[in-house]
């Protein structure tokens, strides 16, 4: 759970950084997007293979992450089969409480996201075969799509906020009360950076700063 989660947080940070290339103009953005599917690690791996190795790692992480979550959820339900009549929350965060359903919602969002921008099955403001830049600008010209993405990215970042703290703690990094504060702070910083970093681009498109 911890290791696969951290792999995915690493991916999110990279993805966010890549999105910001949109501010360098259409050529730079498209070139970057094609490079991702092109000759990374060539000639160590044949040209075009990297993306598939990468996708395999991501898929394995997602499957292992969901499997671990399902096992933990099953154990938790078995361990509290009779619910309390009254529950008082003392230290849990909203992010921690919504990890399970939040995780399911963000998976649904992820499937939509891939259908939209990877397979181009769902076309919102662009046509099939559109260049990445054209696709991005076309899609995020829709205010409702930007709103939908803001909500989804918010859910993702909430998941990341508890996830980063929890993963590092599981891996043994919570060594003292000071470390606990630091890890929670770090988780907040990563979550906020991701939210801001991911939302700048759609907002810039919506307000016409990028077109």
């Amino acid at each position: 759970m911890a290791i696969t989660g951290l792999i995915m947080v690493g991916f999110l940070l990279m993805h966010m950084y890549g999105n910001l290339k949109v501010f360098l103009g259409a050529d730079a953005f498209n070139h970057y997007a094609h490079w991702l599917k092109g000759d990374i690690l060539y000639p160590l791996v044949p040209s075009g293979w990297f993306i598939w190795i990468f996708r395999l790692v991501m898929l394995a992480s997602i499957v292992a992450h969901i499997w671990s979550a399902a096992v933990l959820t099953g154990r938790a339900h078995a361990a509290r089969s009779t619910k309390y009549v009254t529950t008082k929350r003392l230290s849990q965060t909203y992010a921690a409480r919504t990890m399970r359903w939040g995780g399911v919602i963000l998976l649904v969002g992820l499937i939509f996201h891939l259908l939209q921008f990877t397979t181009q099955t769902v076309q919102t403001g662009f046509t099939a075969g559109a260049e990445p830049y054209e696709m991005t600008v076309g899609a995020f010209g829709n205010w409702w799509l930007v709103l939908l993405y803001a909500v989804w990215v918010g859910i993702v970042c909430s998941h990341v906020r508890h996830g980063v703290w929890s993963a590092l703690t599981t891996l043994g990094a919570n060594t003292s009360p000071a470390a606990r504060s630091f890890l929670n702070g770090l988780a907040w910083v990563i979550a906020v950076v991701l939210f801001v970093g991911f939302m700048i681009m759609p907002l810039a498109v919506l307000f016409g700063w990028v077109n």
């Binding site: 938790a76 929890s166 043994g172 919570n174």
Partner: peptide
């Protein structure tokens, strides 16, 4: 049949002896 820890922190908040959450990391 105990559940698994997901680092929520409710345990340490109610502990009458203030066992810190970092023991779980240890």
């Amino acid at each position: 049949g105990f559940g698994g820890c997901t680092n929520i922190g409710e345990c340490a908040a109610v502990c009458p002896k203030q066992i810190p959450l970092d023991t779980i990391s240890a």
